[in-house]
């Protein structure tokens, strides 16, 4: 420090500052693919139509090479006694809830990734392993993921699941909107198998139009709310129901996007790298001034 003269101090400090700014412009462009296409697809789940046959669960496992019992065993309705959640062994599950209007026609709710328009997992992921694809699917990239599980902490729907019992190559598992099938023009496996057409796949805007149409036509059948139209800024999967969504196991969420506040803070702290560079300059100035004072014997 003693050998340091003031001129070179300033020169080096300036060089460091410039380097940091240069780095800032590079970071601004860095990030995973995050497309919000106007033509993105959506699925409408009509929980008043679903009969709880769970064929979708079987089709999902088959499409994703997950081990499964034979289809004939899926008729067992005792599984509905407990609420189940999607995990690394089943990317979608169906839960059953009472129908207060008609005890013989319970409501069945299929649960899987909602494929948010502004996904929290995508925003949170340290390496950008999630991407929002052109068709609306939120997919995970095994080649990037480091297994930190921050996506699980971030997801408002508690969807991503982790293979805790694998020592090597544990995966994050969640519904991928059957990206392999849909890019080939096929329907998602669950939509394809559904025998009662409880699932409607189509452009998201179109699907919302159909939902509104149904609510208008059969007012007494539905609550006037399409879950997922506006929740956390909109999701690709949307639900219609005959009773309040909070009684069907849906979390009560606002219309603000899940990553909204977090990204605002993050981008505020790093606005063009100005705050860190300014702090660096300020500290450099204090260091220089206190040093000068000391040398002058004050």
């Amino acid at each position: 420090m003693k050998a340091q003269d003031r001129r070179s101090f300033l020169k080096t400090a300036a060089a460091v500052g410039t380097a940091a700014v240069g780095m800032g412009t590079a970071t601004a462009a860095a990030g995973p693919k995050n497309i919000l296409s106007p033509d993105r697809m959506g699925v409408l789940v009509d929980t008043t139509v679903c009969v709880g046959c769970r064929n979708c669960e079987h089709a999902c496992k088959t499409a994703h090479d997950l081990p499964t019992e034979p289809l004939s065993s899926y008729g067992d309705r005792s599984v509905f006694e407990q609420m189940r959640r999607p995990d690394d062994t089943a990317l979608c599950v169906v839960n059953e809830y009472e129908n207060p209007k008609n005890a013989d026609l319970p409501y069945d709710v299929k649960v899987q990734c909602m494929h948010c328009d502004h996904p929290a997992c995508l925003s949170a992921c340290i390496v950008g392993a999630f991407s929002k694809e052109e068709n609306g699917a939120v997919v995970w990239d095994t080649d990037k993921c480091i297994g930190c599980r921050y996506c699980m902490a971030a997801c408002p729907f508690q969807i991503p699941a982790f293979e805790y019992h694998k020592a090597l190559d544990p995966q994050i598992r969640k519904c991928d909107f059957c990206i392999e099938r849909t890019t080939k023009g096929e329907l998602p496996a669950c939509v394809n198998i559904c025998p009662v057409e409880a699932l409607t796949y189509g452009p998201r805007d179109e699907v919302i139009r159909i939902a509104k149409q149904r609510i208008r036509t059969y007012g007494d059948r539905y609550v006037d709310h399409i879950y997922g139209e506006h929740e956390v800024g909109g999701t690709s999967w949307m639900y219609m129901a005959g009773r309040d969504f909070k009684d069907l196991g849906f979390p009560k969420l606002g219309q603000n996007t899940a990553p909204g506040v977090s990204e605002a803070i993050q981008h505020g702290i790093f606005a063009y790298f100005m705050p860190p560079v300014a702090l660096y300059a300020l500290l450099g100035a204090i260091m220089w001034m206190t040093k000068t004072r000391k040398e002058e014997g004050l």
Binding site: A124, I126, G128, A129, P259
Partner: peptide
């Protein structure tokens, strides 16, 4: 592999 929006 960078993700500028991630706090982590």
């Amino acid at each position: 592999m960078w993700n500028g929006s991630s706090a982590l």
